[in-house]
Design a binder for these strands. Structure first.
Lengths: 220, 220
DNA sequence: GATAGTTTCATACAACTGTTTGAAATGCAA
DNA sequence: TTGCATTTCAAACAGTTGTATGAAACTATC
């Protein structure tokens, strides 16, 4: 069973290259060169380029979702079925932020690959991505249990904004550093997590506890 | 004088196709077919495919930035050099949101093209994009004048989060609709703007004693 | 109306893409 | 060893890409 080596070498090389340079710029020849295997090996082991990408994505997708759900479940069980909204949000955004930010040398290829996937959205990935909705629904459910007084629409908007801040900060991290002349320290991952979580929490709790609700007018 | 027609036909067709399908999937042959011109016309009028994309991007970039700055300046002049933070944020996110959301038939190709550009980030665009930082700095400046007590870091984070929510909502609008089973109404642009602005405002004013509920200014 | 300059056109080009092929090499069971 | 299946390999394939070419069709000036 030494044949397994070629297969996993391709997977590793492909993930690294995709994470670094995106899907558009990486060819099969780049991948096999990086993996030191023959060109035909990709089609032999995976069938096609798209299936290679798909396998890469499902593997990482499952792993990421499992990590997020593990944090979420632990929190809900500790709270007897209800977790504080901050903890839920933290479970949602922290795994990704930890993988993509922080000191350069300890960023995970896996997380960076997932970010690429969420950005470039090539056909094979787009097809799979719809399943992620079910995963997000679990978080929406937990949030609803945590904030039973909140309207369902507000829950979805809060979830959307939390993901927005985490994702965008990762994608545009370089620009933010340049814009702020280095003032914003993206290496301090826990600080970033805290900022995202606290803003998202405010978005979800404003008007219920101490803050006043934003007056919303139906523009129609 | 009919020669100018070819040039602008190419620009229009390219912008439409890029906005709809992204840069990766659109070839020169797609563009010239859509524009009903000869294949060689692109290289004749623009030099290369990259220069065509670049011209498209700088044109739209200037226009978008001008629109945002117009709203910002008007607000600051009306307030004697200081505009309320909500108004500043609204000037930042509304032009883009208006162009990319709302009823399908009235979305502007220009805005959708700019979103594509901000997502896919092909080389010719990435080179130009660094100038946008100067543009964002103007907004950071206005925000600093509006919230003089706020630390500079917080200003940049607030700016980052505001753009994050606007951008992400546009990019993932389909998913948000599906996730919420249609509960989130993205056709009501002013409501989306209000949500983004009010959360960003909270992020920027939280903790300050005079933090008050964001007030709606204009209901289009 | 001839001429010079611009613009269009069909076509060819060279480079690159993912994929296939068929033969060599390898591993493993008898 | 002999067989048989799996895996590797160099080479070629068919398709697409952006770009270049040179002749034709224009336009405007004299």
């Amino acid at each position: 069973m030494p044949s397994d080596h070629t297969r996993s070498a391709i997977l590793a090389a492909a993930e690294r290259l995709y994470a670094d340079r995106g899907f558009g710029d990486v060819t099969l020849r780049d991948i096999v060169a990086e993996a030191n295997v023959n060109l035909a090996a990709v089609n032999y082991h995976f069938g096609s380029k798209d299936e290679l990408i798909a396998e890469l994505f499902v593997t990482r997708s499952i792993a990421t979702n499992r990590e997020r759900l593990r944090e979420l479940k632990a929190a809900e069980e500790a709270g007897g079925g209800r977790a504080p909204i901050e903890v839920i949000l933290r479970a949602l955004v922290r795994p990704t932020l930890r993988g993509c930010l922080g000191p350069e040398n300890q960023r995970s290829t896996a997380a960076r690959f997932m970010i690429r996937a969420s950005i470039e959205s090539v056909p094979p990935i787009r097809r799979i991505k719809n399943r992620e909705i079910d995963h997000l629904r679990k978080f929406a459910g937990a949030m609803r249990r945590s904030l039973p007084d909140r309207s369902e629409v507000d829950i979805y908007w809060g979830l959307n904004f939390a993901l927005a801040m985490a994702h965008h900060t990762i994608r545009e991290s370089e620009r933010l550093i340049k814009l702020s002349d280095g003032l914003c320290d993206l290496d301090d991952v826990e600080d970033v997590v805290q900022r995202v979580v606290s803003v998202a929490t405010m978005a979800l709790t404003a008007g219920r506890s101490e803050a006043k609700a934003p007056t919303r007018v139906a523009a129609r």
